[in-house]
């Protein structure tokens, strides 16, 4: 589907929350295209109790799907049993036979129970079948620690998905990118994994009321600078800008790149920046081994080695599960002070 893409930032007057931007993209795409369906656990809630006057009891676990069932009915907004393998697989089957199917996986940590459908069917069908099929399937899922939810409800392991050929992966960082990238994901003819960050749902920002599409695979610079490139992913973009504001007081002018897509990755955008700043720190909430942060550092080392004044570096979660207790979770998460310390070492070293 060809669509003109919107600019990478917005200055319109209307401000809505990240959560509302997701809801608006879903609603507008369901209005626009009657083949769009969405299924998942508790996406309406209290399913099957219309006779008791219960409809949309929850509006989604994080209220990103609120109101959809009232507008589109329970044949297009399908609450599912707790059966991720079946409904993710069924969404892929529906997508390969003429629907645009969106499935919601409540937390990315739950991927283990349905990974096979994603890995062996969604990602590979088009290739294995010699191009006979399109799989316009979107998996909405949630990432992010910092909420005391412990090891099985807090992961950010998006890197394992970007490792899989056949999948596209996007990581919106604010309300504007949330709407534009979800609209793009639903209109895309390939399977797209869309990672919502739990820590961003309440963030407000300027969002146009009409539908618009942001290109999947394009990064954006959210803060220009000349001394070092900080690459952020999802919420970490705002950790980078917080660090950059502090660093500016010390006379260090950091550029912040918001990656937005982790498959494909906009390597050229990052490399162009590093060629000007000569230094790189990637800030990634995911764990470090085989991570997006590692990937970007490797790519920059290979393709811009002679431009570098310091080793490409990473600020990430440690190679541990997400801990429960507050002080442990606090040190687990990358934050501005860790970024600042890393930058100081690279700039002054």
């Amino acid at each position: 589907m060809t669509t003109t893409t919107a600019p990478m930032t917005s200055t319109v007057a209307r401000e809505i929350m990240y959560r509302e931007a997701i809801n608006e993209a879903l609603r507008q795409e369901m209005e626009r295209d009657e083949t769009v369906i969405i299924m998942g656990e508790e996406i309406a809630g209290g399913a099957g109790r219309e006779h008791l006057g219960i409809v949309d009891a929850w509006g989604g676990p994080f209220r990103t799907t609120v109101g959809l069932i009232q507008q589109f009915g329970n044949q297009r907004v399908l609450d599912t049993p707790l059966s991720e393998a079946a409904f993710v697989g069924a969404a892929i089957g529906a997508a390969s036979t003429g629907m645009r199917a969106v499935a919601e996986l409540m937390f990315v940590d739950f991927i283990g129970v349905c990974m096979d459908q994603l890995l062996n069917n969604a990602a590979k069908m088009r290739y294995m079948f010699g191009g006979q099929v399109k799989v316009p399937f979107v998996l909405l899922t949630r990432i992010g620690a910092g909420f005391g939810s412990a090891a099985q409800h807090s992961e950010s392991f998006y890197s394992i998905f970007s490792h899989i050929p056949g999948l596209k992966c996007v990581v919106p960082s604010d309300a504007y990118t949330a709407k534009g990238l979800l609209t793009a994901a639903i209109r895309d003819d390939d399977p797209v994994i869309y990672f919502e960050h739990k820590g961003l749902y309440g963030n407000r920002g300027p969002v146009p009321e009409e539908p618009y599409v942001l290109p999947i695979g394009k990064a954006r610079t959210v803060r220009p600078g000349s001394d070092i490139t900080l690459v952020g992913i999802s919420r970490m973009t705002w950790v980078c800008t917080e660090a950059a504001d502090e660093l500016a007081k010390e006379g260090v002018n950091a550029e912040v790149v918001d990656l937005l897509s982790i498959s494909p990755i906009d390597y050229d955008h990052v490399i162009e920046s590093v060629k000007r700043t000569h230094r790189l720190v990637v800030v990634d909430e995911d764990t470090p081994v085989c991570s997006i942060a590692s990937e970007i550092c490797a790519r920059v080392a290979e393709e811009a080695f002679e431009y570098l004044d310091a080793p490409p570096s990473r600020v990430t979660a440690p190679h541990t599960p997400v801990p429960y207790s507050r002080p442990l979770e606090n040190i687990y998460l990358p934050n501005a002070s860790r970024v600042i310390n890393t930058v100081r070492r690279l700039v002054n070293g």
Partner: peptide, 13 residues
Amino acid sequence: PLAVGAALTSKLR
């Protein structure tokens, strides 16, 4: 589940 999804397409459409 792919067959189940195809059946869902058939039912919805």
